[in-house]
Amino acid sequence: MNIFRLTGDLSHLAAIIILLLKIWKTRSCAGISGKSQILFALVFTSRYLDLLTSFISLYNTTMKVIYIGCAYATVYLIYAKFKATYDGNHDTFRVEFLVVPVGGLAFLVNHDFSPLEILWTFSIYLESVAILPQLFMISKTGEAETITTHYLFFLGLYRALYLINWIWRFYFEGFFDMIAIVAGVVQTILYCDFFYLYVTKGEGRSQLSIPT
C-alpha cells in the first residue's frame, strides 16, 4: 500500500459519502443519475464477490463492505425514499449500450476464463464508463450543483491517483495489470473535460455549466 493508493481509496470514499450526504441532507436526488448509481452498485457487486472466497486484509474487507453498502443505500434513496425528486426525464442514457459491449469484452479479454475472474473484469470495464449517464445528464440539463461537481471531482481523482499507484507498483513491486491500467486510463480520460471545467469555472460559482 502506497500513499497514492491510499489517497485514491479515500478520495473514492469521499465521493461516495459526499453524494450520499447530499441526497440525505437535501432530501433530494435532483441532478443525480440513478442509472450511473445502479451501474456503480453493479460494479461493486461483481468485483467484490471475492469477499466470499479470499481474505486480503481487514482494510480491504472493510472498504469493500462500505463501498457496496453505500452504493445500495444511494440507489435506495434515489429509487425509493426520494423517488419523487428523481429527475428521470433527464436520465435517458441507454445503459444497455454500455453493459452489453462491456459484458462481451469481459468474456473476450480477461486474465483467466473463470466466473469470478470474468465478473471482476466486467466490473473493471464497467466502472470505466459507469459515469457516462451522469455526465450525459449534466450535458443535457446544462448544469450541475456545486456539491455534485465535488462528487465528480473526487470520483475522477480516485482513478487518476490509482494510475500513479500503478506506475509506483510497476517500479517498486513489478506489479502490472494491463486490464486495470487500460480501463483506468479510459476512466480518467472521461473525467478530463470535467476536471478542466471544475478547475477553471468551478471556483466561486454556485453552479457549473457544461457545454453540450
Binding site: D9, D50, N60, D112, S114, L116, W120, Y162, A180
Partner: peptide
Amino acid sequence: KADETPHDEL
C-alpha cells in the same frame, strides 16, 4: 492469474 494473485486493490 486469479488463483495465484487475488486482486488486492479496491
